[in-house]
């Protein structure tokens, strides 16, 4: 039997235009090689990233989401990355509650000069998410639907047996 194909995680990466996107451009110009699993979506500032984008990416099948912004104090828009940080700390707690493991979402500060850090972060994230295995939130969501349905069914059945308490 041929060797089982290695799981290749799908990573969606939101990169800010001024620091991290530029760093990824620099990595390209410098021909720094890294794992091909990340798909970059450019935003002007990491502060543009609505937590909904990250949830949506997971819901649509991403195994990991990476958010890259300028280092604290270096934001092109003065303080957008602080707002990102605040939002993402809350989001991380929410993700945990949803059963999405640590490491599937990652916030990194990568400056325009740190082409090498793009490689290090993406490679490291791909390895860690690969170890976690597929997230398959769409598949899990179907399971949750079934569970809910079963619960609802159970409630209906018990309600059928009982007399209504009021009209």
């Amino acid at each position: 039997m041929s060797e089982k194909r290695r799981f290749e995680p799908k990573i969606v990466a939101f990169f800010c235009n001024w620091c991290t996107y530029t760093a990824a451009d620099l990595a390209g110009v410098s021909r720094i090689k890294y794992a091909p699993n990340a798909r970059v979506i450019r935003v002007m500032c990491s502060g543009r990233v609505d937590p909904q984008f990250i949830l949506d990416a997971f819901a649509k099948g991403a195994d990991g989401v990476l958010l890259g912004g300028c280092h604290p104090g270096d934001c092109h828009y003065a303080e957008g990355n602080y707002k990102t940080l605040r939002r993402m700390r809350l989001l991380e707690r929410m993700l945990k509650g949803m059963g999405i493991e640590d490491g599937r979402f990652r916030l990194e500060w990568i400056s325009g000069a740190e082409g090498d850090k793009v490689k290090v972060v993406i490679n490291d994230m791909v390895e860690k998410v690969r170890a976690l295995g597929p997230l398959d939130l769409p598949g899990r969501a179907k399971g949750w639907d079934k569970e809910l349905e079963a619960l609802a069914h159970g409630v209906r059945k018990s309600e059928d047996k009982k007399e209504p308490t009021h009209a």
Partner: peptide
């Protein structure tokens, strides 16, 4: 407005 989009996200 300088177009960072922080408000749009919030």
């Amino acid at each position: 407005c300088k177009g960072c989009g922080v408000c749009a996200a919030a």
